[in-house]
Simulated scan of single mutants.
Amino acid sequence: MPRAPGPVFPPHPAPASRLKRLATPVGVMAVVVGAFGYVAAVDPNESGHYPVCPMLRFTGLLCPGCGGLRSAHAFAHGDIPAALGSNALAVVGYAVFAVVWLLWAVRASRGRPMRIALAPAYWWAAGALLLVFSVIRNLPIGSALAP
Rank of each mutant, 00 (worst) to 15 (best):
G34E: 07
V39M: 08
P25A: 03
V39G: 13
A35S: 11
V33Q: 02
A30Q: 09
G27Q: 02
E46Y: 04
A23Q: 04
R21G: 13
R18N: 00
V33Y: 03
R21K: 14
G27T: 05
L19S: 14
G27S: 02
A35M: 08
V39P: 15
N45H: 15
L19N: 08
L22Q: 03
S47Y: 05
T24V: 15
Y38G: 00
A14Y: 01
P44Q: 07
L19E: 15
N45W: 05
A41K: 11
A16N: 05
H12K: 07
H12Y: 03
G27H: 03
G37Q: 06
S17D: 12
P15A: 05
A35V: 11
R21M: 10
Y38T: 08
L19D: 10
F36E: 12
P13D: 09
A23E: 04
P25D: 07
V42L: 01
A35C: 09
V26I: 15
A35Q: 02
A16I: 01
A23K: 05
D43L: 02
A14V: 09
K20I: 01
S17A: 10
N45R: 15
V28Q: 07
P13R: 05
V42K: 06
K20P: 05
V33P: 10
A14E: 15
G37E: 05
V42T: 15
V31H: 11
L22Y: 03
V28K: 06
M29W: 13
V31I: 15
P25Q: 00
S47L: 04
A30T: 14
V32T: 12
A40R: 14
V31Y: 08
K20H: 08
L19A: 14
V26R: 04
V32G: 09
L19W: 09
A30Y: 01
M29Y: 10
V32N: 09
N45C: 04
A40P: 06
R18Y: 00
P13A: 06
A14W: 05
Y38A: 03
V42G: 04
G37K: 01
P15Y: 00
G37R: 00
V26P: 11
V42R: 09
P25R: 04
M29N: 13
F36R: 04
A16T: 04
A40Y: 06
S47P: 14
P44M: 05
S17H: 09
A14M: 07
G37T: 03
A35H: 01
P13T: 00
V33D: 06
M29P: 12
R18L: 01
S17R: 09
F36P: 02
A14I: 01
A35L: 12
V32R: 08
V32Q: 09
F36H: 10
A35N: 02
A30H: 10
V28H: 09
A30D: 10
L22V: 03
V31C: 13
V26F: 10
T24H: 12
V42C: 06
S17K: 03
A23F: 06
V31S: 11
T24K: 14
